[in-house]
Nucleic acid binder design. Sequence first.
DNA 1: GTCATAACCTGATGTCATTCGGTAGAAATT
DNA 2: AATTTCTACCGAATGACATCAGGTTATGAC
Lengths: 145, 145
Amino acid sequence: MDQIDRALIAQLQRDATQSYAALGQSVGLSAGAVHERVRKLRERGAIRATTVDVDPKALGLGVLSYVMVDSNAWMGDTAAAFAALPEVQEAHVIAGAASVLLKVRTPTTEQLQDVLRRIYDISGVSGTQAIVVLETFFERPIAVG
Amino acid sequence: MDQIDRALIAQLQRDATQSYAALGQSVGLSAGAVHERVRKLRERGAIRATTVDVDPKALGLGVLSYVMVDSNAWMGDTAAAFAALPEVQEAHVIAGAASVLLKVRTPTTEQLQDVLRRIYDISGVSGTQAIVVLETFFERPIAVG
DNA sequence: GTCATAACCTGATGTCATTCGGTAGAAATT
DNA sequence: AATTTCTACCGAATGACATCAGGTTATGAC
């Protein structure tokens, strides 16, 4: 993982549709060499997947919120329970007052309420605190440096 | 944006490297028809970009945290100030006690402390509360339904 | 200095993206 | 109802590109 690999990752984050020849141009290598480097980055898991970035609004998911989940039990093995809720985009175990932090996308705040109800149904959950996003400044890829 | 478009988006989220012929197989259309549909999804902005999903650990960014920023002024036009901090991956204006919520990735907790220091330097910021993630259950694409 | 390994380049091959002409169905107009 | 218009689709053709292989240079170990 040298400076060229980082440059390649940065380029691919910006636009993963560009050709290996174009990538080679921007880092000063041949298409073949770039192909081999990217293949290894995928193999090692540094590049997990090639995906598309979708506009949530286009899917009718206009409401973004973060939910702090309080619990009265060990939450270390409840990943599947949260994953079963399709509105939950991220789930993290956190240090501090609450024990789990969720990123939730719903069409409306009414549907958020319904998600909160389903969260309460999960074993060990004792309470929730929802933080509704009013405006997203930005969501961007990880900075590669 | 019909059911076929949603299926295409779901497929592309899973793997954007597959051929249009393969995509056509999974939705029952020809490669040409799929090509045209995807082109329009990009044009409309439903598909914002094609990118790679990078493992933060591979870039040495092992610490994920969320930072609640308290303020004593209107924070509606401070997007650029937060965007200037490369460790900040997301920034949202939120309803509730704090006024901005940040998603921050750093190599270490010491570097998180340094980011907090730089956040304090932003005009209008009166305080911060950092929530450190102990374990990420999952981070996944938006559910297309 | 020599050997071994890894990274690279160039060129060849097959696959695929992209485009085009034509067709069928749906919707709007007369 | 007939006609027109528009949209989505298919199948084929073309050119670009991913992918692979053979040979070469650079890198590092002994």
